[in-house]
Amino acid sequence: MSFNQILPFFSTAIMLVFTVYVLQRYFVRRAPHFLFWGIGLAMFGAGSFAEAYLSLAWNKWVFFVWYLFGAALNAGWIGHGTLYLLTRKRWVHVVTAILVLGSLFAGYLMLQVMPNLDEAVFTTSKPVSEQYGTKILEPGETPPAGAQTETRTYRGEQVTVVRGLLPLGSPVRLTTPFFNIYGLLTLVGGAIWSAYLFWRKRVLPNRVIGNVLIAAGALSIGFASTLTRLGYGQLLYLGELFAAILMFAGFLTAARPQPSEEPQSAKVALATE
């Protein structure tokens, strides 16, 4: 097992602690943003655990969890929590309904593709992020080292492909950009916006730093996912570990009690000065 394949175990452990921490807050405060963050983080953790498992053995349902929760849905759900935090308008409930229906639809598409997985290409010697997608080779393009290629007919054309677990043109792969764009906009955009608001008012420096860390963490996983799409999947696990550490650190920093949350006597004393 390579060093890269050990990383998801660390990410899983961090995400487990992070998820429990956030869900505990939801059960105490009943604020919806904690619920969506908790669900999204649980998805992230499930994806990391699936990666860790797939570095040891093959199981198609673990792959199902990895792709659906780890690659497609988690960013959107975490980001939706941030949207709930920033706005309490009614239209957010409509977005919630769209997110839930979209997630169910992505799950349905993933279920449909399960019987057609090319399980023969799977190897534990490579991270699953480097072998999940079937990719058409452009003329003159050389396949990555160790990749299995074959020529097949696709949409009436003869193409050479690098074989991957998901069949060529799987519709479920088209759903991931929707969730990831939404997740990036709300999670990273929301964190940057929050940090800017506190920075502009020159208050609560811990929230500024916390939100910067959360945005940086979310960007690191976004960046690593983009590199994976471009064929550099070996950086995905490192990006995930960075994301887990930075986002948890950011959350802890931002959630640290501040003077406004100090006992009532202190608040009164501040107000009367």
Binding site: P177, N180, I181, L184, L185, V188, G189, I192, A195, Y196, W199, V208, V212, A215, A216, L219, G222, F223, T226, R229
Partner: peptide
């Protein structure tokens, strides 16, 4: 902090453009 916020905003926009390109 302001430089970081601007830089992260640019990276976010680039990643969104990439995903939209996909």
């Amino acid at each position: 902090v302001p430089i970081l916020l601007i830089a992260m905003g640019i990276v976010m926009a680039a990643l969104i453009l990439f995903a939209a390109g996909v």
